[in-house]
Design a protein around this nucleic acid. Sequence first.
DNA 1: TAAGTCTTGCGCGATAATCGCACATATGGT
DNA 2: ACCATATGTGCGATTATCGCGCAAGACTTA
Lengths: 259, 259
Amino acid sequence: MAIAERDMSLTFLKGMTVLQAFNDAGPAPSLADIARITGYDRAITRRLILTLVQLGYVEKADNRFHLTPRVLVLAGGFLRGNDFGRLVQPVLNICASELGHAVALAMVDADHAVYVAQSTLQNSRFTFGFTVGSRIPLMQTSIGRMLLAWGDPDWAAQVLREAPVDPVTRATETDRDRIADAVTIAADQGHALVRDEFEDGITGLSVPIGSRGTTRAALGLSEPNETLTEAEIPRLVATLRRCAGQLRPGFSPAAGAYS
Amino acid sequence: MAIAERDMSLTFLKGMTVLQAFNDAGPAPSLADIARITGYDRAITRRLILTLVQLGYVEKADNRFHLTPRVLVLAGGFLRGNDFGRLVQPVLNICASELGHAVALAMVDADHAVYVAQSTLQNSRFTFGFTVGSRIPLMQTSIGRMLLAWGDPDWAAQVLREAPVDPVTRATETDRDRIADAVTIAADQGHALVRDEFEDGITGLSVPIGSRGTTRAALGLSEPNETLTEAEIPRLVATLRRCAGQLRPGFSPAAGAYS
DNA sequence: TAAGTCTTGCGCGATAATCGCACATATGGT
DNA sequence: ACCATATGTGCGATTATCGCGCAAGACTTA
């Protein structure tokens, strides 16, 4: 099952690494920045970036490089392939309307979760700066723990064992066993609630999509702590669950690996 | 200014072509499908796809391949780099709220426009199936014509001369001169209105972001014809313009090419 | 059932592209 | 003016890529 070195293109791998590097770099990295991040020789880095420029994924302005909107087209291939525009987005909108809160949909990507869609609330002048394509950790977030709780058990065990637990707020739980306990509770409850651990003063609440053991997507919301009182939770969970049920058809066929 | 062949990586170019091919292919293409689309030998195609699998951008299931959510991370690099989460999305949400209609933001990508963000309306159970990353033509859409009208004149002239004008509805205008006239009108008015030409029974209305001659982004909405009466247009345009003005800061610095 | 068509998997030698050093030039901060 | 750092590019040696070719599996048609 493992892919032999013979069956891979090293040059392409390097090229993708360069493209990835734009995520870890600032908004407008220089050639040297990318070379440092990737660790490749500047000549190689230059050729690979120029290839991206030629293809229209990157623009060069004043010896700095930046991504173009064309990278979104690649994302569009995924979103369209899963019929997000028709099957997912409308459900999210209705869900947000019923909840009175903005909701987000995230999927497993190795040892992170990736925002794949979000329904923004009309009046909310307030956002956390997350967008489609944002990666969030699994260990410290509500959505992440829900994915761990109902995702592939082997994968979850490995993540719980190896994923970093660096504190990002003062309340971040850094004890792996305690996190595992929280995940177990989430698995039994069918929803995950995390307060303050990822962003100070913020509570995340999420439910899984699909069935226990094979879940790859989760639906969640984030609000200031005082907005989500204990009394409110049951109603929110119920609504989230109903929406998650409607989203399920869009996530059943592709079996998908956790890598 | 042209990039010499010496300064490019052919293997990387082929790899990106394979990744692109997932857009033109169905949702779950086989190895042979991709090889046909790209025109490369199957052995090469295989190596390149396996590289993508190894990197986590593609999954293999039952001799078929499909994109993973990780491709969204690449898009996230662009969105985060331009601070979409904080600068753009909130404005779109407020804009939609004031208008009572969902709005979309699109940017120039060579001879197409790409949806880069959209504010969904809470209650709208209705969508056109477009998502972030969807490409729409310039010649037949409201947003496209607005981009042509206020975009770089040389680029616009070339698109008007060369872009395809294949009819997609019975009302599609196929005469380049007439399209050019419509674009001129849009340029002078500062907004573009297109009825039925892209989707039957649908009207698009859009305004530019930035200043005439250098615009690369446009803000627009789409609704059934009867929803957008002539009497409504002025109010909608005024609101769209105000939002476009607020979006402007996010689009000033990057000069950007049209390619 | 068997032939026919279309797949995927993979080994291997010749070829051609990549690699990365090295030097000249440009840029920017102190 | 100086130093540190970045970019642009030429070129020979290396090495990864290329793509043919064959074996084996899947599906269709007769």
